[in-house]
């Protein structure tokens, strides 16, 4: 009875710990982000280019009409782009920005957003303007899904760019895409050991920090 009790307790503890993971990504986004500055040095908006993983890209384009099989033009994808952008509104475009510690409000995407389809990957391009453009000494932009249904990671190539802010310094870009090798390394950490060397959670909060004089 005591042994049984102990086993049950340990299992329940493990379960409680494990189920707190709350992880469920079904959509992977590889993103390139551009921070857009006005000539006077105010930050005016964030330009996103989000590439979806191939499975979700295939899923999203299922049943869409196209002239050439397996290829979609911008025009053919326009209705889908509209739906994408509209449904992102509910989630605040997964984009959270603060200027000198103050929360920045975003407006709906500027017209002219579009989807393109290349190598079986859909990429959503849109510009999120700030409601009130400001000058900020420190700008922080985080892109993540709090419910981890969508997994965001920066592209290896040109993850973040500053447009029109020559004096500003791009300080921190976290994190990169996790490679399979890294995933494997992570999986080899024993379950009971606290993982300190590979902060997995940082994978979810893709953070941009910009310092301006």
């Amino acid at each position: 009875m005591n042994v049984l009790l102990r086993i049950l307790f340990v299992s329940l503890l493990v379960l409680a710990a494990g189920s707190l993971a709350q992880a469920h990504p079904h959509v992977w986004v590889t993103m390139q982000t551009e921070l857009v500055y006005a000539p006077d040095g105010t930050i005016t908006g964030i330009r996103h280019a989000w590439s979806f993983d191939d499975m979700f890209s295939t899923f999203a384009t299922q049943g869409l009409e196209s002239k050439e099989k397996g290829k979609f033009t911008r025009d053919e994808l326009a209705p889908l782009a509209k739906v994408n952008v509209e449904s992102l509104k509910e989630f605040g475009y997964f984009t959270f920005a603060t200027a000198d510690g103050k929360k920045m409000e975003l407006t709906d995407p500027a017209p002219g957003f579009w989807l393109d389809y290349k190598d079986q990957v859909l990429t959503l391009n849109f510009l999120l303007p700030f409601k009130k453009p400001v000058k900020a000494k420190e700008l922080k932009v985080e892109i993540y899904d709090p419910s981890i249904f969508v997994d965001f990671a920066f592209a290896k190539d040109k993850p973040v760019q500053l447009a029109g802010a020559p004096k500003c310094k791009l300080d921190v870009v976290l994190p990169r895409e996790m490679t399979f090798a890294e995933g494997k390394a992570l999986s080899q950490i024993p379950a009971e050991e606290k993982n300190t060397t590979m902060a997995w959670g940082a994978q979810f909060a893709s953070k941009i920090l910009v310092h301006c004089p």
Binding site: V14, A191, K194, G201
Partner: peptide, 11 residues
Amino acid sequence: APSEVGGFAGW
């Protein structure tokens, strides 16, 4: 931001 997930859950 979601808090850090390590160990068993992260695995």
